[in-house]
Amino acid sequence: MEKAATGAILNPVEDRFVSDDALAPAFFEWLCRMGDSALVLGHRVSEWCGHAPALEEDIAMANTALDLIGHTQMWLGLAGEVEDKGRDADALAYLRDALQFRNLLLCELPNGDMGVTIMRQFLFDARHYALLMRLTGSVSPRVAEIAAKAVKEASYHLERSSDLVVRLGDGTDESQRRMQAALGQLWPYVDEMFVADAVDEAVAKAGIAPDPSDLKAEWEETVRSVLAEAMLDMPGPAGFAQTGGVIGRHTEHLGYILAEMQFLQRAYPGARW
């Protein structure tokens, strides 16, 4: 199958769900959740480009950001087809306001130090990989096709972030302190990854994606194993789960991300290289 250099599918396979009017609202929302989380986290990680503490990490993080933004193009491209209102991936990325974004709150949190950045990436990667593996068996051929491509990169992301958590957690007293502090800071945001609502229930019932709660046991097993090797204590249940990103209730941080990310398109509408 022919593919663009960016990873977008040029000759997509037939998929009856793309033109299913009854399912379209939920399917579109779910696809935006997939694409927006990848886009916002990709932008966050890209902020380290030229600023990481070591050249190897600088390059690796830039590549991770590019991978995630490549995933965004596929998910939001399909979302535009499902919506069928003439919006492509670029329009969905650059011409929506914060309240219309459906990313996980975890993805928009500030980078902090490298401990926060690496821990955030690991917590996201563990769930992202598990989800994409399930999606390769989706009854939606288009979703399965995107997942099959993205999961290869997600596998590397998880391997790399797991390794860094172990190296920093089981490193110096200072690196361990920072990693434990990062884990505690981010922990209230992880439950959002496993909370299902009507959108999730609709796509799960159709066989397109798993119920988010079905991923939690696998995620916990991965996280517990890596944290144990890293000599880090896994927190107990969060007293209050921070949720709302997937329905458009965001932290103040997303507005600043979009102001930077969308500036060129907003300043010069329709501009092309």
Rank of each mutant, 00 (worst) to 15 (best):
L232A: 02
G244A: 03
I257P: 02
A267W: 13
I208T: 08
A209M: 07
V203W: 02
G245N: 04
H250Q: 10
D233F: 03
K205V: 11
D211W: 09
V246S: 12
E252A: 13
P210S: 00
G236C: 01
V226N: 03
P210E: 00
G239F: 04
I247V: 14
E252D: 14
P235S: 08
A206D: 00
G255E: 13
P212V: 00
G255T: 13
A241P: 05
S213M: 09
A204N: 11
G239P: 00
Y268K: 12
I247K: 09
M234W: 03
V223C: 06
E221A: 13
V203K: 09
Y256D: 14
T243G: 06
E201N: 09
K216E: 06
L264E: 11
T251Y: 11
Q262F: 01
D214Y: 12
T222W: 09
A206I: 01
L258G: 05
T251H: 14
W219F: 08
G236Q: 01
H253S: 08
I257C: 05
Q242Y: 11
P235R: 04
D233S: 12
L215K: 03
Q262E: 06
R266G: 10
W219K: 02
A204R: 10
F240V: 15
G239I: 08
A206Q: 04
A241K: 04
I208P: 06
R224W: 05
T251Q: 11
W219Q: 00
A267Y: 12
E220M: 11
H253L: 04
I247T: 10
P237I: 04
A217H: 05
A206L: 01
L227F: 08
V199M: 04
H250F: 08
A202G: 03
V199E: 01
Q262I: 05
L232E: 01
H253F: 15
I208W: 00
H253I: 06
A241E: 00
E201W: 05
E218H: 15
D233V: 15
A241H: 07
F240I: 15
A259P: 12
L254E: 02
M234C: 09
A267G: 08
H253R: 06
E201S: 11
A209C: 10
A204K: 09
L215I: 00
L258K: 04
Q242T: 06
T222F: 10
G207S: 07
A230Y: 02
S213Y: 02
A238Y: 01
A202Y: 06
